[in-house]
Design a protein around this nucleic acid. Structure first.
Lengths: 298, 298
DNA sequence: TTCATGGATAAGTGCTCTTGATCCATGCAG
DNA sequence: CTGCATGGATCAAGAGCACTTATCCATGAA
């Protein structure tokens, strides 16, 4: 059976307006429909209720007792409904949930998100860091920062920056071996997480494809964040994304001995569901990223 | 612009059920539609809001925060709405407004309506007496009792009884002239409202077409009700509908000297809007009248 | 692995709803 | 009292949407 037959919602909405304005024509105007349509809907409602709701006097309609009783409740209900919709719309515009990798979040976003918030006081930001590549259809979230190739089905992705890397260490540690002049010098030092796939890639790019890291004590901290901390503490040399450690370099706690940057082919991307690209908050965040990231690509 | 686009009511109803049951399939069952349709409506709502409302986990859906916030309000609104509809339905079933002529109301209905109310305790009866032939589309009312020919456009009418009449007087008055043996005897008495159109009709039927009533003192009470009262008081002979005065006859206050009944061609009818013939209360009243009126015709 | 469950997707269709034209009754102005 | 403006009813026809059926896909369970 038809939904609208048992409980004619549209008819009820039309009724609400007609009852308020005491005119089918005016109700039609307010609702953006014709007087005919209003008449039809009212009759529909009267049929399902089995009672006339309006008295048709010439040049004006007035509510019957039944109508008089029904109108305020219907009005209430629609108020509730539209208030609910509005609040959801506000709230939905008002909170931006960003999923990000731990490193990007703690290094880049943490330093810049304040600017976004100043520029968009109406948008609350919620940062979620997770290693997994989240699926927007089964996890709450508006946008995500991912490293990868930039191709995810159903998602719009914007290139943010290369995810290149280079060895970094504390100046103090470098001094202990009289400075790091050439890549091979690094092998005199403790390599933080020698099993990191990035090392062979970089050494290969540096012309030392045979640099043997196997057999070195493995101390996998599990996340680049800890590698950096260890390197700052002078415990060895780590392979890091220099962009994230500009502050530490400026403070003299880390330095990057070689200009050479290597990449494993995966870059940083801003992604979000294609279908939601025109959401206010997503547009705002995209614009923000475009402004802050020189390498941002549409 | 389309009403349903700006504010998708049907989608909201579907959402309410889906949110409550946490399942599209079950929601479809409850709503009498397919899972596909539910999916479609939810997506529609999500599109207009611009936010996902459900997280699609395998084998189950769950609400997003937005959905979680929206659901209770929508639920509330629909509760209000359906409660309003239900109350109106009850109330509409619960009050029967009868428009009737004064005579039929005070004589026939007043004596029998109690039976109807005993048999239909859920229906409150409101009696409105008016001389005008009411128009159901501009006056509140469910049914009416009218005298006429039985043909009113758009209205269903049931023949109730002939509106025939006969002279009636008090036995005491008849005794003053030694009893009323033949129609001409009536002329010895005071005729109550000699200008009433019924008199010449009856005398004509009685074989006294020339009975001259003109010149007799005219005392038009204006309504048959008063004629009867005058006749009972012994002030003269009135021409009345005997059906209405069975009680007075039984009490010996009135009597009908001749069997002869005349009619002006208009009868009593029960009428109501054709479209509302299956309303519970109208059906109940029709059944009641059919039972109480031997001459009732469908 | 295979099956059962629950949802998404695609395409087709019936029907609700809307529109536009016209009619009718009434109240008001001249 | 006549003509006009207002506001609603009615009718026929068409558009678009709300559903359906059929199919696919992913996951959790047996």
């Amino acid at each position: 059976m038809k939904l609208s037959r048992q409980f004619p919602l549209n008819a009820l909405r039309v009724f609400e307006v007609a009852a308020r304005l005491k005119s089918f024509t005016k109700a039609g105007d307010e609702l953006g429909m014709t007087q005919t349509a209003v008449s039809y809907q009212i009759k529909l409602l009267e049929d399902t209720i089995g009672e006339p709701l309006f008295l048709r006097r010439p040049r004006q309609v007035s509510l019957t007792e039944i109508g008089e009783r029904l109108a305020p409740k219907v009005s209430d209900a629609f108020d509730t409904l539209s208030e609910a919709m509005a609040s959801v719309r506000d709230q939905s515009e008002g909170t931006l949930t960003i999923h990000t990798t731990a490193t990007f979040g703690s290094h880049w976003l943490a330093h810049h998100i304040g600017t976004f918030q100043l520029e968009n006081p109406g948008i609350a930001v919620r940062l979620e860091t997770s290693q997994e590549v989240i699926d927007f259809s089964r996890t709450e979230g508006d946008v995500a920062i991912r490293s990868g190739k930039g191709t995810w089905p159903g998602l719009k992705s914007h290139f943010l920056m290369k995810s290149h890397f280079s060895p970094m260490l504390s100046p103090a540690l470098a001094a202990t071996i009289g400075g790091v002049k050439e890549p091979a010098d690094l092998l005199k030092l403790r390599i933080i997480d020698p099993e990191d796939m990035w090392w062979p890639i970089w050494f290969h790019a540096a012309g030392l494809p045979e640099a043997d890291l196997a057999g070195r004590p493995s101390s996998q901290f599990g996340a680049q964040y800890f590698h950096a901390a260890a390197a700052i503490a002078g415990q060895g040399v780590a392979i890091l994304r220099p962009e994230f450690y500009a502050d530490d370099v400026a403070l003299g706690r880390l330095y990057q001995p070689f200009e050479l940057l290597a990449s494993d082919g995966s870059d940083y991307w801003l992604v979000y569901p294609e279908s939601r690209r025109n959401t206010h908050k997503i547009r705002a965040f995209r614009d923000f990223m475009r402004k802050m990231m020189p390498s941002f690509q549409d």
